[in-house]
Design a protein around this nucleic acid. Sequence first.
DNA 1: GTCAGCTAACTGGTCGGACCAGTTATGACC
DNA 2: GGTCATAACTGGTCCGACCAGTTAGCTGAC
Lengths: 233, 233
Amino acid sequence: MTQTARKNVAEKIASTLRTAIVKGRLQPGDALPSERELAEKYDVNRSSVREAMKRLEAWGLVKIRQGGATRVADLLLDAGLGLVPALIEAGGEMGMGIMRDLHEVRGLLLGWGAEQAAKKADAASMARLEELAKQLADPKAKAAQLQQLDYDFFQELMLISGNQLLTLLSRVVRDVYFQGAERFLPLYRSDVFDPKHHRRAVMAIRARDAQAASDAMRAHAASALALLEEKAR
Amino acid sequence: MTQTARKNVAEKIASTLRTAIVKGRLQPGDALPSERELAEKYDVNRSSVREAMKRLEAWGLVKIRQGGATRVADLLLDAGLGLVPALIEAGGEMGMGIMRDLHEVRGLLLGWGAEQAAKKADAASMARLEELAKQLADPKAKAAQLQQLDYDFFQELMLISGNQLLTLLSRVVRDVYFQGAERFLPLYRSDVFDPKHHRRAVMAIRARDAQAASDAMRAHAASALALLEEKAR
DNA sequence: GTCAGCTAACTGGTCGGACCAGTTATGACC
DNA sequence: GGTCATAACTGGTCCGACCAGTTAGCTGAC
């Protein structure tokens, strides 16, 4: 339990139970203790426990039924993205796996977004992308700044694609991403980060070359992933 | 206000406010009435209002700060996927747009999933895919069954890909999808639904032809999208 | 008049205790 | 042994109080 200082009571309880579920101490189908019992156990009011329960339900980790007990949901069937922070937190192989997956998804979306941008970026968007690429090439930039810029670039592509669902989705990716942000920071150290992919992508988008743009961004994600796996060894 | 009969009190309030926000009656930055005021207005207890607020916060629609007012978040910056049901519900152009986007994302994921499956499907997964393809080709199947099978096929591909994040994501896609399920139902009527893409994909996966598999599933999504847009006219 | 600083009137967060509304297991009755 | 009412659970909602931050307005020094 590190760094849970500033959390709500409900938040603490929710993340405690989430961890218990993810780590398998609570199995799918198991009934959770009743709200009243949990309230007593954690020495908080039942309202707070209820709030925690609602959160777990929103994450798809439990199923609540009035009258019946609250039970752990079948993770494979019902868990949503709310599970991810717990997976990352769990660390080890599990955490590594999910971070690998995250980069894979990012690569997929980046490639598609670049392709779309090549087809329909307007002058204003084009200018924003170029500005971002320029800042990414700044040798004096700090790793954290580069990380942020890289995300901004990603988001700009999603916006250009005009797909609202993906724009919303990129928000989720961001939350997951910056959750374990410091783990990704080494990827942006000045001696390893190379802005060439972004530069190539911007040029391709300007030239309306969808294939090249897509390839460039995929390459970016792939190289990040390769670095990450190298680090893991 | 139709069909809100079986909802929780909190759920009703949350979706009412969500609609207000999505439709722009409440602008980003605007302060919501205080919890006490809302409780009085809707003639419910403050606890219920609080629950609704927590839900809106989880959706990224509002920002809650102890001491300060609860304010509408900047949708472009903070809203997550929880916004989607409201967009669909809003109907009209907006709803149509989001459904179009949904199919686009589905196509992207289907294509990628099929590609991955061609690379790493094992015998058991292969068998499941074939079984699903067979059932999809059943001329006696009802539209709703076909729709479910189509989703199952999608999910199986996500599972095969081994990407946990995408598996979780497909859960979200499912929720969005079956939310407005009846709107998609016409796509599965026996006189329009054609299982050939699934058949082609399965054959390609068996032959380990990633490109062909990907193309087949992309074609499936594209044709569904085309049908959808034709219907909209 | 201007501005710092205090205070009062907000906001959301937590509490406890009550009662309503469903579910489930018990046990008397047939 | 099977059935069915009911008691003892579960979560859902309510009330009213107080704690803990924020904000705005007032006061007073300059």
